[in-house]
Amino acid sequence: MSQERNAGIEVEGLVREFKNGPRAVDGIHLRVAPGEIYGFLGPNGAGKSTTVLMLTTLLPPTDGTARVAGHDIRREGAAVRASIGAALQEAALDPLLTGRDHMRLQTTLQGIAKGDRRRRGDELLERVGLTDAADRKVGGYSGGMKRRLDLALALVHSPRVLFLDEPTTGLDPSSRADLWDEVARLAREDGTTVFLTTQYLEEADVLADRVGIIDQGKIAAEGTPESLKAEIGRPSVEATPVDRAERDAIADVLSRFGSTVPAPPGAAAVRLESGENLAEVVRALDAADLKIADLQLHQPSLDDVFLAKTGRKLDVSAAEEPASV
């Protein structure tokens, strides 16, 4: 088996059923190419984390199988674990130990040669900007610092495949951007395959080469962000009247150009039929003598894709519960 194939992920009919519960993961199939960033998108409870737990050998599948970095997760757990790094949803850190202690522990656990442990730990602490805080107890770290330490710990043995389970949940925008840069660099410069779960559409859009949308344990859609948005195809146009009483009149005009889609209160919106353009919409509104306060053309987003594929919106605010660095 080639080195190239060894760095990817192949999932065949993976199932996880919990006692007295629904199928958290219901027969998913997916492939992640070596060096690819794969965004695994879905709301809470969709099955993202359960999938990661199975792929990282922390939870045995009920059925199906997967190969991670060329190793079967059922039969070659130790080999899988030697090839992967993972930063799971809660940054599992010991508040009584320092960042440097964690590095020493992780380099030891991963079997880094004794003489290289200190150097490797210092190198990674520097890479994630924690050198100055290295000798402080982790209990005093901010949320962003803990996430960065967690990422550094996942990288001590230069894994070929990296699993990041909602790595930016709870981070402020600046910390989130720093983490995105580091993940992109890992894939681009080191050729690391990244399996990234997220409920933030923007994160998947910015980072992922390909996206899989999971809903109720099943893959609802898969492709590059561009191809998925192209499937939805048409942009939407949203108009807000100067006089709110004219909202229905505006909706009537817009309905000539496409199907109605949800809009904020006081506004009307339609998904444009193919061939229609904004200029024609403006001319029609002008011809009807309607005064427009705001007119916006929205290109399709992953949120639209999610809505189209699952019939529901993925309404998670990226700014939810920010934690500063």
């Binding site: 990282t56 050998t57 922390l58 130790a78 674990r81 030697a82 992967i84 993972a86 799971l88 809660e90 599992a92 850190l93 010991d94 992780q106 656990l109 991963q110 079997g111 710990l153």
Partner: peptide
């Protein structure tokens, strides 16, 4: 969750 860190790293 610290046990997962150990479980993940241990062959």
């Amino acid at each position: 969750g610290f046990s997962r860190r150990l479980m993940l790293a241990a062959p």
